[in-house]
Amino acid sequence: MNEQAQAAQGRPPGDISQMSYAGPVVAFDQVYKIYGKGESEVRALDGVSFQINAGDFVAVMGPSGSGKSTCMNIIGCLDAPTAGRYLFKGVNVSDLSRDQRALLRRHFLGFVFQGFNLLARTTALENLELPLIYRRIDKKTRREMAMEALRVVGLSGRENHTPAELSGGQQQRVAIARAIVTQPSLLLADEPTGNLDSARSHEIMELLSKLNHDNGLTVVLVTHEEAIAAFARRRIEFRDGKILRETNTKRAG
């Protein structure tokens, strides 16, 4: 760990939006997440350590119930570990308040949820504007950023469509656009292609690869499918809350 890391370690900065750090974006150090007590205790994460660097493209794999979503929720600062240490950009997330974690999400994280999770009866454009509103970005800039994100995901001209008026693949692309519109440091996607056919899944993965390659966006995604995981450069496999193996599938560059 370098000096900067030690300086920042465990100490939340005054203004979270100005946080910068040269070390790994995500650093898990013996992280446990335990649900329940005694007999009914479930170790969703059982002493997990790994790091994710800026620009990585990681696929998280493993059978159902192995702790993938739990791990993603912790990476995404939606949840805190029961024990162990999680440093996001060198900051110990366990030391942060609920609102400080919200600010981390607001400024550095983008989420693509499995069920799309767009606001119903709200146009694509408005869905994209939502995270920008919380970032206090003025209306004009907001509009421009949202239109640009829609263009990136190939949905120009659909800005006034509501989710009900879009196909599943289009909805998922709106969800990706919403996750990247704020130009986050880290994109988290929990089974982003879960309910799409293979052609649509392929489209989505190409889009994510492109964002990773062109913009240097760090991507972590959960998937069951080998074909999807093949797009990633690294693979972390879980079994029973533990890391079974880590492999590099493609050489960077």
């Binding site: 919200a102 981390l104 999400r105 607001r106 989420f111 999770n117 119903a120 939502l130 919380y134 919403r178």
Partner: peptide, 16 residues
């Protein structure tokens, strides 16, 4: 509830 979840996930503060 889901809408609130989305808002919180993308970084809405409690007071917001």
């Amino acid at each position: 509830t889901r809408e609130i979840g989305i808002r919180l996930a993308i970084g809405a503060l409690e007071k917001e």
